[in-house]
């Protein structure tokens, strides 16, 4: 690691003032940041530890939802009674990620900000536009097994690697952000992460000095919740493809179909057209195929990751079949 000054603010205000600039990085659980600092992918001059600023409660909201503090650990979220009962897709997504040791440290806010696992990003002796703007992309003409097939750009084909945020996207959760001078804003999880475009270094919409304070889950909805993660080993592996689904039926037809996908893009992928297509229809294999066609119509593989396109199609079908109890 590069030498850094370690600062531990005693309040959120203090934290804003310390982190308002280019040279400081916030650290909470540290499971991703320290990994990258050891590789010198991240080289902050100042590390602002926000790990003891509270924000570690899960509270009921007025409209029947939940507010999960930014410093609530993944373990606490996954094991919270109401989350297990009312938002099982979120509990399942978290439990499908990493290991108990990592989930015990990883926080809600930190996990949202988790950076890509692209091998060229984590190797500072390789080109990477995300890490070093203008240096090129090693993955596009290299090994792109982990990489994205949706929303990529000629600059970057990296994926967002997490699971938690994929479930939060399906649940249409909202990120609560606080900036300096008491400015607050709320950003839907679906809009929190960015696509690489011409600014691949930008993972999400946070501005310098802004701190995630919570994630708000809307009131629970009826329906079956599923998190399906396809990976190369049975545990402790990042997703090749994952699907988070909240699906409700009314009689024979689909009444709700909130879907989000991991492993496919620079962000948890949510395509509102899928719900439009599925809702009101009787589920069958042909419908699931059409949903996959829609999801993947602009998908582009990069050689090694071409398989993600058919795999996403099949995994979506499996999830829809399970959720709607349809035989295909």
């Amino acid at each position: 690691m590069r030498p850094f000054d370690l600062q531990r603010p005693d309040s959120l205000d203090h934290a804003h003032s310390l982190s308002d600039g280019e040279t400081a990085t916030l650290i909470a659980g540290g499971t991703n940041l320290l990994d990258l600092m050891k590789l010198q992918v991240e080289t902050p001059e100042r590390l602002v530890a926000i790990d003891r600023l509270g924000m570690n409660a899960i509270e009921d909201t007025e409209d029947g939802g939940l507010r999960i503090g930014a410093l609530v650990t993944n373990t606490a979220t996954a094991n919270h009674d109401r989350i297990r009962a009312d938002y099982p897709v979120l509990a399942r997504a978290i439990l499908a990620g990493a290991t108990q040791q990592l989930r015990n440290r990883a926080t809600t806010g930190g996990n949202l900000c988790q950076r890509t696992r692209c091998y060229y990003f984590t190797n500072i002796d390789q080109p990477c536009n995300k890490r070093e703007p203008g240096s090129g992309c090693g993955a596009i003409d290299g090994i792109a097994r982990l990489h994205g097939v949706l929303g990529t750009s000629p600059q970057c084909i990296a994926t967002y690697p997490g699971d938690m945020a994929v479930a939060m996207s399906a649940l249409d959760a909202v990120v609560e952000i606080e900036g300096a001078a008491d400015t607050r804003r709320q950003v839907p999880v679906r809009d929190f992460h960015c696509l690489p475009g011409d600014t691949p270094w930008r993972d999400n919409v946070l501005e310098p000095g802004e701190i995630i304070t919570a994630v708000i889950l809307p009131a629970p909805v009826e329906g079956k919740q599923i998190y399906r993660k396809v990976r190369e080993r049975s545990s402790y592996a990042f997703a090749l493809v994952s699907v988070a689904a909240v699906i409700a039926m009314e009689g024979d037809t689909i009444a709700r179909a909130d879907l989000a996908f991991g492993g496919l893009a620079h962000k948890p992928w949510h395509d509102p057209r899928l719900a439009e297509l599925l809702v009101g229809k009787v589920p069958d294999a042909a419908l699931f195929d059409r949903a996959a066609d829609l999801l993947l119509e602009d998908a582009q593989g990069y050689g090694e990751n071409d398989f993600k396109i058919p795999l996403a199609r099949r995994t979506l079908a499996a999830v829809l079949a399970e959720a709607t109890e349809t035989t295909i």
Binding site: L6, R8, I27, G29, G30, T31, L34, D35, A49, D51, T75, Q100, Q101, L102, N104, R105
Partner: peptide, 13 residues
């Protein structure tokens, strides 16, 4: 009381 990876945390914290 919680198991963690000691490599991914700073002693100073």
């Amino acid at each position: 009381g919680m198991r963690i990876n000691s490599c991914l945390t700073l002693a100073a914290l």
